[in-house]
Design a protein around this nucleic acid. Structure first.
Lengths: 149, 149
DNA sequence: GGCATATGAATGAATG
DNA sequence: CATTCATTCATATGCC
């Protein structure tokens, strides 16, 4: 039971930004060397491995349409939810998508903590305040499915 | 009284029954159209959205007769599957993989035993904006690596 | 009231 | 590139 920190890669905003920009630039499937460079560069902002980059581009079909729900069906609070469509199936059912507010609060707190002293764990559950930011990206819609409205 | 609008989907027994039956019937990953139909049908019994159906099937690996949820299975296999390199790009970046500790100290030493409940990791990354991102363009190596095999 | 558990939701990782 | 698997996160609910 490894409490090992072997966590899943947590893309930081900076990393994301760069990746997205690259994607926008036309990068689709970087080669090994490309990946290496990208990884090296991104690793500056946080832990990242080559495979992360690789998979990211693999999964990053299109970050388009941060579709929003249609105003006609839900009267939820609608906290600017953007349904991130991932698969075609989802794309179609999008109509029903009305994802409320589940964004991912990036807990990028300040610098690395020096928690030797009685500092509470930095990963405290709280502090999930603003999940705004542009954390939501990625919408894997594929094909030609009519996405969102 | 679940009057709260933004609540999570609350599957009704009827919905569950239908879903499970479908699952039993062999439905594993319904397509968009499938999802739509299912959703439509289930919506009769209560509010439900396409994503709910989608996720349900996604998560419903084996919720039926799960008998291994608890028990004293404290250890894990951790077979550390070797990453079978699939593409050459990956092969090359492989070096970057398995980069264990590297430079990112993400984990704190936990002296005291913490309950596993809500074990949150801290993938916090410094959102430092030292920036100075030297617009490092991508190298157009264009090597001879043919990706996929 | 909070703590424990269950499960929906999200997405990174992997495979075909 | 599409699809599926696995892990994690967040929220709801139940039991103290």
């Amino acid at each position: 039971m490894p409490q090992v920190p072997s966590t899943r890669w947590c893309p930081t905003p900076e990393q994301l930004m760069i990746l997205e920009e690259m994607y926008r630039s036309g990068v689709r499937t970087p080669n090994a060397s490309q990946i290496q460079q990208i990884t090296a560069r991104l690793s500056y902002y946080g832990r990242i491995e080559g495979k992360n980059v690789f998979y990211w581009f693999q999964n990053h079909k299109d970050a388009n349409s941060v579709c929003k729900m249609e105003a006609g069906d839900a009267e939820e609070a609608s906290s600017t939810s953007d349904a991130t469509l991932r698969h075609e199936s989802m794309a179609m059912v999008d109509a029903t998508w009305a994802v409320p507010p589940c964004c991912r609060p990036l807990r990028t707190l300040d610098l690395f903590p020096t928690k030797s002293t009685g500092l509470k764990d930095e990963c405290s559950t709280t502090s999930k305040s603003s999940c705004s930011t542009t954390t939501n990206y990625m919408a894997h819609s594929s094909l030609h499915l009519s996405l969102p409205k």
